[in-house]
Amino acid sequence: MEFLRPRTWQEALAAKAEHPSAVPIAGGTDVMVEINFDHCRPTHLMDLGRVPELHEWEVGSATVRLGASVPYTKIIERLAPELPGLALASHTVGSPQIRNRGSVGGNLGAASPAGDAHPALLAAGAEVEAESVRGARRIPVEDFYTGVKRNALADDELIKYIHIARADGPQQFSKVGTRNAMVIAVCAFSLALHPARRTVRTGIGSAAPTPLRARAAEDFLTVALEEGGHWDSGRPLPPSAARRFAELCAAACDPIDDVRGSAAYRRRAVGVMARRTLGWTWESYRGEERSTRCA
């Protein structure tokens, strides 16, 4: 095994081009477990810890440009107003020690269906900026996940930034685990209201081979909110519509039975989380609307 220590982004890209099998390591919260438990023995380990861009973020007018290695703790502490869903998701990652090291770039690189960031990225809307010596490209996060622990990156590519839409409305994230802390998701759900565009987006984790959006549920809810005049009135959705939304979210799942939970339970739990997060986000939207009108 060889240990590579690029000091700049260009050095990192060059190294990855030269050693396509090199495993990038940032927080180490996935890679080191694999090594410690003898599950992987890469030819090269490439430490991205010294590449400054990866640890920085920039809040733009419409998006946040998040460096791939920005640890979850920073997202919770510094970016909650702009990225509320991702901040909530970040708060459910592992433990404080893990959140101090783990990052969204790592979550994407591992592409585990159980990664906590994925549902929040899907719901908010995000693009992954990948780069190689051949050039840079932006991949919509929906297209980034290609299979269980597989992603759209080419062998010579590295994740530089994640461009995440700034929240224009309430966002929520819920995750089911069989412990009250430090637990890998049995399944997870994220919901973002986008009042500016009068749409909603969802993200489901750990209930299919890849993280995914419940598109039929999104479409149903977008139409239901529009047709009922809810965005303007702020009136809550009728319970039957909320139930239907939950059913459609559950139906979007394609889960398996594994040591963490059964497929049937995952479907059920996604439905419950969908219904609850819809209630919370809508309540929050109404509250914001009221205070905006009063002001």
């Binding site: 240990f3 890679v31 080191m32 380990l45 020690q97 893990i98 090291r101």
Partner: peptide, 18 residues
């Protein structure tokens, strides 16, 4: 758990070279 540049981290998940 150790402090790495002040942050509490799991030393088992930090590669020595890092």
């Amino acid at each position: 758990t150790v402090r790495l540049d002040g942050e509490p981290v799991c030393a088992c998940l930090v590669a020595a070279g890092q």
